[in-house]
């Protein structure tokens, strides 16, 4: 169970839950109680009736651990469905980040140029700072943040990954 492989592949798991009080605590408690890793977590209501929420979890582990995570999630009473989006076929993953850069002079101009390349939007500006909004998969967001580092990166706020399967089939 606890054996750690050198490269534990990342999996994005979508969990559709009944929107009852404490359901998020059940999911998070399961991960901490059984020693599973959470790399990112997003949660929001996803239907008009407001009785279903979707939790997207990025976790890592070998095949046996990922199977256990899925089975343990399915065992929680308020869970409708669990889908391992990494296993089940192609999927789209997106993350949004708000990135604050404090810079003047050449760095300020360079930050704007990089933002343009990444199609990041400036959503706030002062004479000495920007807040950029950047959207994409986690790799793109990471790359953008890395580039901002030497230009005056001051603060980052990220949503974590939301994901959905490609194609016509719905969860």
């Amino acid at each position: 169970m606890s054996e750690k492989s050198e490269i534990a592949p990342k999996h994005t798991i979508a969990v559709l839950v009944d929107n009852e009080p404490g359901v998020l605590a059940r999911v998070v408690g399961l991960f901490s109680g059984r020693g599973y890793n959470i790399e990112s977590l997003t949660v929001a209501k996803v239907d008009a009736g407001e009785d279903r929420s979707r939790i997207n979890i990025v976790t890592s582990g070998n095949e046996m651990i990922i199977d256990q995570i899925r089975a343990q999630l399915e065992r929680l009473i308020p869970v409708f469905r669990v889908v391992d989006l990494t296993e089940s076929g192609p999927s789209v993953e997106r993350e949004l980040a708000l990135v604050k850069v404090v810079a003047k002079g050449e760095n300020r101009i360079e930050a704007l140029r990089v933002a343009d390349i990444f199609r990041a939007r400036a959503v706030d500006s002062t004479l000495g700072s920007f807040v950029f909004e950047v959207t994409g998969d986690s790799g793109k967001v990471n790359a953008f943040i890395d580039l901002m580092q030497p230009l005056g990166l001051a603060e980052v706020s990220r949503t974590g990954v939301v994901a959905i399967a490609r194609g016509a089939d719905a969860m």
């Binding site: 169970m1 256990q68 399915e74």
Partner: peptide, 11 residues
């Protein structure tokens, strides 16, 4: 009856 018991300790 519990799928999480499968492959938990033993393959």
């Amino acid at each position: 009856i519990d799928p999480s018991s499968i492959n938990k300790n033993i393959s």
